[in-house]
């Protein structure tokens, strides 16, 4: 008896149903479980902060209560927004440059042994040089414009992208590469059709780390010398004891980092839908 499409359907639908029904009912519970503890912790911490500051009459310039930071966020919103845009621009441009440079470098390193030997030590060495020491030099060499900040952001965030992408390009299953060879694949086809797709999940984990670092990079760039941006605003506000403004800037910067991280996660889901399925599949079959 030949195996008809009917048997085939049954075979295939069984595991997929297990995934959806299992994950759907679990999804809701796990979302609550995932978000409830950090939310509760934040609320408790803010409440304790507010209570302590009021109870002990701590001066506002020393430690403002969360409520006055919230007020500051609202009242200085146009000022904060203006500086936020500046920082965001530096983050975007610097990170975009890190992506381009990082991916190109990773591709060259993974494709050519010679490039790997020549360039990889410098990629690693670049991380041992403290960025905070390079930033003033950039100022001397390039001046006060946006470029020194972009370069600091790039320097700080390209490393996780390069390292992860190189690992990803090298992670391609050797059996898969052999299978491709028996189908007549050339070196370049192995690279573009197996190595590159295998590396995408790795690239995205590099992006998640890099994007969070890039916010830090922009602030460092602005501390050293700038006329706008949240980092600049902080360095200007602190000597004037505008402590709630410093806190408001910190709040916006972490919100920016978290949002960018979340965007990277979303982009990953959208760009490589097969990857989550593969992971689910492995979880079910225990492979």
């Amino acid at each position: 008896m030949r195996e008809g499409p009917n048997t085939v359907y049954m075979e295939a639908e069984e595991p997929s149903q297990r995934v959806t029904s299992g994950v759907l009912s679990k999804n809701y519970a796990s979302m609550v479980l995932q978000w409830a503890p950090p939310l509760a912790l934040i609320l408790v911490a803010l409440g304790a902060w507010e209570g302590a500051v009021r109870l002990f009459h701590v001066a506002r310039w020393l430690l403002p209560p969360p409520s006055s930071i919230g007020m500051e966020l609202w009242e200085s919103r146009s000022l904060l927004l203006r500086h936020t845009w500046v920082t965001l621009e530096e983050v975007f441009l610097g990170f975009a440059l890190a992506l381009v440079v990082g991916i190109a470098l990773a591709a060259a390193i993974a494709y050519s042994r010679i490039v790997e030997r020549a360039a990889y030590p410098f990629v690693i060495a670049s991380q041992t040089v403290p960025i905070i020491a390079i930033a003033p030099l950039l100022l001397i060499w390039i001046g006060y414009g946006i470029w020194p900040k972009i370069i600091v952001v790039t320097l700080i965030s390209f490393f996780p992208i390069v390292v992860n992408t190189v690992d990803g390009l090298k992670s391609a299953d050797p059996d898969m590469l052999n299978m491709m060879r028996t189908l007549g694949a050339r070196r370049w086809q192995l690279f573009t059709k197996v190595q590159v797709p295998s590396s995408v999940p790795f690239l995205f984990s590099g992006i998640r780390v890099g994007v969070a670092l890039s916010v830090i990079g922009a602030v460092i760039g602005e501390w050293v010398g700038a006329s706008a941006g949240l980092g600049y605003l902080m360095t200007r506000s602190a000597p004037q004891f505008l402590t709630d403004r410093v806190f408001a800037s910190i709040f916006i910067l972490s919100a920016m980092g978290i949002t960018l991280f979340a965007l990277a996660v979303l982009a990953e889901r959208y760009a490589i839908p097969w990857y989550r399925r593969e992971k689910q599949d492995k979880a079910i079959k225990g492979r």
Binding site: V8, E11, D281
Partner: peptide, 11 residues
């Protein structure tokens, strides 16, 4: 149009 992940071994 399916991805391989959720297919059975035979498929």
């Amino acid at each position: 149009k399916n991805y391989p992940a959720l297919l059975s071994g035979g498929m």
